[in-house]
Design a protein around this nucleic acid. Structure first.
Lengths: 335, 335
DNA sequence: TTGTACGCGTTATCAA
DNA sequence: TTGATAACGCGTACAA
């Protein structure tokens, strides 16, 4: 059996109450005895049992994570390693709740409650993917990544999708492109909407008229990127460039371009979104928008921690800047 | 406050003991009352508080995961999604222990104990990376991935590295290659050792003499793959093929080959290892050994569960078959 | 077959 | 400044 608070108390010649006070930073304890207790704690390598701690109503120091994508999302590891930084400094552990069965009888929320989870990070969902009402109503602090939820104790964080897309349009315009197409992700997803908005804003600022058929819809994957690009290539007035909503779909688009006998970037410039590892491995290496998922993960936990510590806090809302990474997939417009 | 066992008991008109017995599958309870209790449990959406449960000495249903690589390892998500399957069926949740500070004062093991963790999965370590003694001595069941640890309550799981490497040699031999080089990973890592062993066995079986300078050392990365390949290319009797210990290093090798004016697979055939996503995106697409990380993750939890449930269990040891994925980076030997 | 009562390790209250 | 003790929610001998 692991050592407990009583072992410490008896070895230090004090009561358990005193040990507890020392450990919880109460100032109402003599400096001398405090030191003695601390020494014993160190000697015995004592660490309070977290189950007992959370049972008695204190903090469980546990944050849950809730994802839809399983774990397959390309950003998952980056977000996680960003989260680790602040988890560490705030003292939380992260629990991944196996989806025993999120149904009426056994909801995600009940699971969180039975585990005394202090807050949750939600990632990979769209608004209509599931019913978040139960989560919101439960009052468990929640922080959404890439989904604009603002409720009583829930906020969100995301990249600056709109400005990122605007920026790509400007970049292509500087390369004298006027026929700039847009390969969208799932149309009504939060990020796609904002990126499309940024695309439109960018066109307007650059004085380029908007052509409806220059916007093709995909679902972020390589396969739909390929198909959507084929559609764009068949257009009578073929675009000279394409802005894609993900690196994967950009790779698909490049393949479609190549298969149609054209080349990147000589005939068509391609811009991706995300800067996943693959972006630097393809040929030509992909010019793309880097999302700072490390920072997003880090800030997500910080914001969640704020939410946990202040019941009255207004829903946090954080937008993280992106960076345009210029590689080899864009060139000056032909002609 | 969430509902507790007393709420259930009073609403069902029984004692808390009866409710507890129903919930824990005791047979010494009347069928009629059992049903009544179950109905109330359902109505109230009751779920036992896991802190109280683990405090009273029962299971915490929590498995810890311990990684060195941060989360950057390319396999991490695959392993995790494999683990999810069995976590779910066994009823465990997975806790990712933020590395608050693994030092003498606050060890990983103490952290596990204070959280009543039932077992841990360890991934991404080499034998000399850290001192596992404390973990082994603690008696916490542990399952290592890609590291052959066999101790009292610790076992491991890994791909069949040796046979995988043998198989690649045979494949190249069938393509009439005789000058088969080997681009190793970190030399004394567990997986590298076995792959080298398989390479040697394959050569012998194919009747090909072993040349020491056909083995170059890297560290699994693209960069060292590039450098090691350069060394192989400078050899007087240049190899016609190379077996790499990772896809990343294979990509580096392909770049070195291309930069030296040669081409893949016309001049040199390249085989990778892992089959990470990138393998199918490079050009030519990489022929490689697919590791079944989903199965490895799934089995890891199953084996750990066995270890948890049977104190006397012999250290489990599982070797998972691989598959050679043939794409475009290998061709018949020139000449 | 059911219920009473204690203990798990910790924190918080209140009296000393 | 310290200590005794009652919670927290649950599981389980043991008694009924």
């Amino acid at each position: 059996m692991a050592t407990n608070i009583r072992d410490v108390a008896s070895k230090a010649g004090v009561s358990v109450a005193t040990v507890s006070k020392v450990l919880n930073g109460y100032t109402t304890v003599n400096e001398k005895t405090k030191e003695r207790v601390l020494q014993v704690v160190k000697d015995l390598q004592f660490h309070p049992n977290s189950a007992a701690r959370s049972l008695v109503g204190r903090r469980s120091m546990t944050i849950g994570i809730f994802l839809t994508t399983g774990l397959a999302h390309p950003f998952f590891t980056q977000i996680l390693s960003g989260m680790e930084q602040s988890l560490k400094s705030k003292g939380y552990d992260l629990i991944y709740l196996a989806q025993l069965s999120w149904n009426k009888e056994y909801s995600f929320v009940r699971h969180c409650q039975s585990r005394n989870i202090e807050g949750v990070v939600v990632f990979g969902f769209q608004h209509d993917d599931m019913n978040f009402d139960e989560l919101i109503e439960s009052g468990i602090p929640a922080l959404f990544i890439d989904l604009d939820v603002k409720e009583k104790r829930a906020g969100y964080i995301s990249s600056d999708n709109q400005n990122a897309a605007r920026r790509t349009v400007h970049y292509l315009a500087e390369l004298n492109h006027r026929k700039i197409s847009f390969l969208s992700g799932i149309k009504d997803s939060y990020v796609s909407r904002l990126r499309l908005k940024g695309y439109l804003a960018g066109l307007e600022e650059a004085g380029i008229p908007y052509h409806e058929n220059y916007v093709a819809e995909g679902d972020f994957t390589r396969e739909t990127g390929y198909l959507a690009m084929q559609r764009l290539l068949r257009l009578p007035d073929r675009p000279t460039s394409v802005i894609c909503c993900s690196d994967l779909s950009a790779v698909g688009a490049m393949e479609a371009i190549r298969d149609s006998g054209l080349s990147v970037p000589q005939d068509i410039s391609v811009i991706g979104f995300d800067d996943i590892e693959i972006a630097s491995y393809v040929q030509p290496a992909l010019t793309t928008v880097r999302q700072d998922m490390i920072t997003i993960g880090k800030r997500a936990i910080e914001l969640l921690d704020d939410l946990i510590n202040d019941e009255q806090l207004a829903p946090p809302e954080a937008i993280i800047p992106t960076e345009l990474i210029i590689r080899g997939s864009c060139g000056p417009a032909k002609e």
